[in-house]
């Protein structure tokens, strides 16, 4: 019995080992440094203060080019902001609404129920304003890149001068961690670019960490609830497994 159970797990293990690894791209695989985030590990959580600062970085720096169409202003309450704060933040932005009774579209201040305002109305306008390169929507960027949050942080802190012998194409910037090392986005973060409300010094690493935390939350807002539920479920199932095994042994006692 043990031999066959072992076989089953070996088969399962083989399947897991054969799961596609992220670094399957042609050419050299770039190693992404591992960064410790508050949300790492089974019991990690999103540091709300960091995520709020990260939202400020997004609002003041990234939102000039990057949309986050899947998020609504009301979602910010999950980061610890009050209903009034969220309403105030939303009201800073103008969003399109309509048609009104004359058939016209009009602009009005955003409400918490509105989606984040996009910098461009569509992808073509975004490309036109950025030399043909499309600044991707950041709603799920952390899930959409191999390496996840580690990669985003590495990218934001990975700008450097090109090493000798490497010629940059027109308008491209050298980044240690971007596949191919030539990225259209210039280094977005400069020291003290943002004045943090809580007084935290706004170094590039700090801003990168904060905005990565914010983006990780934005991609997986259910993360904390999911893991908490997972712990309860697996604990429950483990106990049930013990009980079920005891029942099985009892039922089979007269046979073995």
């Amino acid at each position: 019995m043990f031999r066959t159970k072992l076989k089953a797990f070996a088969v399962l293990g083989g399947l897991l080992a054969a799961a596609p690894s992220p670094a399957g791209a042609a050419g050299e695989a770039i190693a992404i440094p591992d960064t410790r985030f508050s949300f790492d590990g089974v019991f990690g959580t999103f540091d709300h203060a960091s995520a709020q600062r990260g939202f400020q970085v997004y609002k003041e720096v990234c939102s000039a080019c990057h949309a986050m169409r899947q998020l609504s202003y009301r979602n910010l309450q999950e980061l610890g902001l009050s209903e009034q704060q969220v309403a105030a933040i939303a009201a800073q932005f103008q969003v399109m609404d309509g048609p009104n009774d004359e058939g016209q579209m009009f602009e009005r201040p955003a409400r918490p129920s509105d989606r984040f305002r996009s910098p461009f109305p569509n992808q073509q306008a975004a490309r036109a304003a950025n030399n043909g390169a499309y600044p991707p929507d950041l709603s799920v960027i952390v899930k959409a890149r191999p390496g996840g949050a580690d990669y985003i942080y590495a990218l934001l802190t990975g700008y450097a001068d090109p090493p000798p012998g490497v010629t940059m194409m027109d308008g491209m910037n050298y980044n240690r961690y971007f596949p191919g090392h030539q990225i259209a986005m210039p280094a977005p973060l400069n020291p003290d670019q943002v004045q943090y409300a809580d007084g935290t010094p706004a170094t590039v690493e700090q801003m990168a960490r904060d905005v990565t935390t914010f983006l990780a939350w934005a991609a997986e807002p259910e993360l904390e609830q999911r893991r908490a539920m997972g712990v309860k479920v697996i604990l429950f199932l483990t106990i049930l497994a013990g009980l079920a095994y005891a029942v099985k042994r009892k039922v089979w006692a007269d046979v073995h």
Partner: peptide, 19 residues
């Protein structure tokens, strides 16, 4: 009884992935 036990183990693996 035996299948029920196996089912619970299967759910544990499943839950590991999902959560």
């Amino acid at each position: 009884a035996k299948d029920s036990f196996g089912l619970v183990i299967y759910f544990i693996v499943f839950a590991g992935f999902v959560f």
